[in-house]
């Protein structure tokens, strides 16, 4: 594949969300906020109420029956969750098993990356915070969190659904059918980053919460662990302040983990879609496609590329921060300093 074709494909992928999104509202003016929100949100109907946007009913890819009133339908994010899990499990097991069973014991490039991270986290995070004695018990959780979130973040950088929307729109025009009725339609329009969804992040944070609670109970016993919330050696009135603060801090940990990851991933994508949306806005306000293309080449593409590079950094960093904080919380529960 030569470079010109590569650049063309990248530009196409960058602009595809706009084309796919803009196609939905042929008679109306383009609403950049609506486009931005629908780019990040899960598959659902979004309606504008006054100045704010409200989530409507879920439009699932594959509707499943409700159990106890909980909707288990496969939405875009459930599908992405399965995709991320599949990619994480297969690629890591394949690489690790290939590496371990090899005779030369020399890692390839992807395995070298995994080994570098595994060794770095083991030496700088696990051994430092959890300690030599207990780290092996909790290492799999920290590693899995890191790689799971990393794959989720990076997968979010590839506009799979937007590109499917692009294909859907022009494909259905080509064979003269309404693009709303194709089987691809539920898979179009944004929502690429599963780690920007607070539900998934809160599930991960819940696991972290149980991990550090179980770690503390394992070390100090079911009563001893809760006693650690009241550090000894304080004047007794202070306990009325310290204990509630400690408990509040513990309960807020999963919440902060959730919102940090979701906010970071969401923010990058909103910025990305706003910058790419400049093309349509310029084209609309000047009523000319040429001006739109000029705006794209001047602002949208360079800015989007910068944001994507920033997103690569942020995606990596947030995965590391989540894993690091999990290790830190487990370490705090295991090594209580009085």
């Amino acid at each position: 594949m030569n470079n010109a074709l590569k650049i063309f494909l990248v530009c196409l992928m960058l602009i595809s969300p706009i084309i796919a999104g803009g196609g939905g509202e042929t008679n109306k003016e383009l609403d950049p906020v609506y486009e931005a929100i629908s780019h990040v949100a899960d598959s659902m109907k979004i309606t504008k109420v006054g100045n704010s946007y409200e989530a409507g009913e879920i439009s699932a890819l594959f509707t499943l029956p409700k159990i106890y009133g909980i909707d288990f339908s496969i939405t875009k994010h459930v599908f992405l969750l399965l995709l991320v899990s599949f990619i994480t499990v297969t690629s890591i097991i394949f690489l690790v098993q290939k590496y371990i069973s090899s005779h030369t014991k020399v890692p390839g490039k992807p395995m070298n990356f995994i080994e570098m991270i595994v060794v770095y986290i083991r030496d700088n995070v696990l051994k430092n915070f959890i300690g030599e004695k207990y780290y092996r018990e909790w290492a799999p959780l920290v590693y899995t969190l890191f790689f799971f979130i990393l794959v989720g973040n990076f997968l979010g950088l590839i506009p799979i659904f937007d590109f499917l929307g692009f294909i859907n729109y022009f494909g259905s025009k080509l064979i003269n059918i309404d693009y709303h009725n194709t089987f691809l339609y539920p898979l179009t329009k944004g929502g690429n980053t599963v780690t920007a969804n607070i539900n998934l992040n809160f599930a991960l944070a819940t696991i972290t919460f149980f991990a550090f609670t179980i770690a503390g109970i394992k070390k100090y016993g079911p009563i001893g662990h809760w006693k650690n919330f009241a550090p000894p050696g304080l004047a007794w009135p202070l306990y009325f302040i310290v204990v509630p603060i400690e408990i509040l801090g513990m309960l807020l940990r999963p919440l902060t983990l959730t919102l940090r990851l979701a906010g970071n991933m969401m923010g990058g994508h909103l910025a990305l879609i706003i910058f790419t949306g400049l093309v349509m806005q310029i084209a609309q306000s000047y009523n000319s496609v040429l001006m739109g293309l000029a705006g794209a080449s001047l602002f949208s593409v360079p800015l989007s590329i910068c944001i994507i590079f920033l997103e690569i950094l942020v995606g990596f960093l947030q995965a590391y921060v989540f894993a690091l904080l999990t290790a830190v919380f487990i370490g705090m529960a295991v090594n209580v300093h009085h």
Binding site: A41, S52, Y53, A55, L82, L200
Partner: peptide
């Protein structure tokens, strides 16, 4: 808010699948 929709279905999906992956 469409960006902060609480959906217990996705939450349970995530828990189960992540634990399996783990």
């Amino acid at each position: 808010n469409p960006l902060f929709v609480v959906s217990p279905g996705l939450y349970i999906w995530s828990l189960v699948i992540f634990l399996l992956v783990l």
